[in-house]
Design a protein around this nucleic acid. Structure first.
Lengths: 162, 162
DNA sequence: AGATATAGTTTGAACATCAAAACATTTGAT
DNA sequence: ATCAAATGTTTTGATGTTCAAACTATATCT
């Protein structure tokens, strides 16, 4: 690299010259948007076309197994409890979620999936599994570990802002 | 692995027993949500607190360099042109974007960033760069290549649904 | 010139979101 | 035992996002 090139880059604020950096960033941005829009359009195409991707994510956060409270689910989704209440109202109306007042503490509402909600949960989980399988498809053990390392790094980086 | 375990897993529809698969999926879901909420809250904390993360992404899609048309930007964001018109109205009002009627074809609107819009673009780009740098931080050349391969796989998988 | 196609805008309806107020219940203090 | 404070949830009003469909303006085709 000659000094002229270096100065030019410095002036533009391009600190890191690794070409992979830009490529990886572009992939991240594209893939990010694609996942959202594809999940949305696949949902519309399925028998669950009365749901948006946000509603799907709410159902995902409610989860199959342990019944969670409204507060727990809202926190997991990073929305206010008020917003969640509205969302759950719609999902109850549509038959995916049920509310159960806790007997221990009658202020608390436990959320659970109906049979229909559980069916959807499994379908969505299947899509995710296929996606991750496709990612790992032609990758060996070491490459898989590298991906995991990258995800851990990204996760740790994001925690700094929480 | 014994047969009992295998049967149990098969019955549950858990086709792939790679433990990494679940871990990677969980990281993806978490990281995905975190990026959105952190970008939003960082924006609110910055001098650009009059913008939502969706508006930020619109500005990103408008881009710094080549002026794009409304149709092109809408397609890139996977929203309708009508939705974009509304969004651009607000961004023009807030001083981030400008509309220029094309002289070649007076039906066409070219979109560009104002000085303020370009400043924001750079700030956001900087955040992204830092994020990718953090990801690659402790990774060697081979590991970086593995990440790239994973992203390519994911991208190719998503294209199947387009 | 008139019909058709293309680019963008407007409008009305549904949902998402937050902050703040309201409500119900539990916990803590006296 | 009572009352105040804390906690968990819901309601409400305001603003933003999104789509589909109707509409406007301009270009292209025959």
């Amino acid at each position: 690299m000659n000094i002229k090139t270096f100065d030019y880059q410095t002036l533009l604020g391009v600190e890191n010259l690794d070409p992979n950096l830009e490529v990886i960033n572009d992939y991240l941005v594209t893939v990010f948007n694609d996942i959202l829009t594809i999940e949305e359009s696949e949902l519309k195409r399925s028998k669950f076309h009365d749901l948006s991707i946000k509603e799907m994510h709410t159902i995902n956060a409610v989860g199959m197994y342990k019944k969670k409270t409204s507060s727990e689910v809202a926190k997991e989704l990073s929305i206010t409890v008020g917003t969640l209440t509205v969302a759950i109202n719609n999902l109850v109306k549509k038959g995916y979620v049920e509310r159960i007042r806790s007997e221990d503490d009658r202020r608390v509402v436990k959320l659970g999936l109906t049979k229909k909600g559980k069916l959807l949960y499994r379908v969505h989980q299947h899509f995710h599994r296929e996606m991750v399988k496709a990612v790992l498809n032609n990758m060996d053990q070491d490459e898989g570990q590298a991906l995991l390392k990258a995800l851990e790094n990204l996760h740790d980086f994001l925690q700094l802002y929480k």
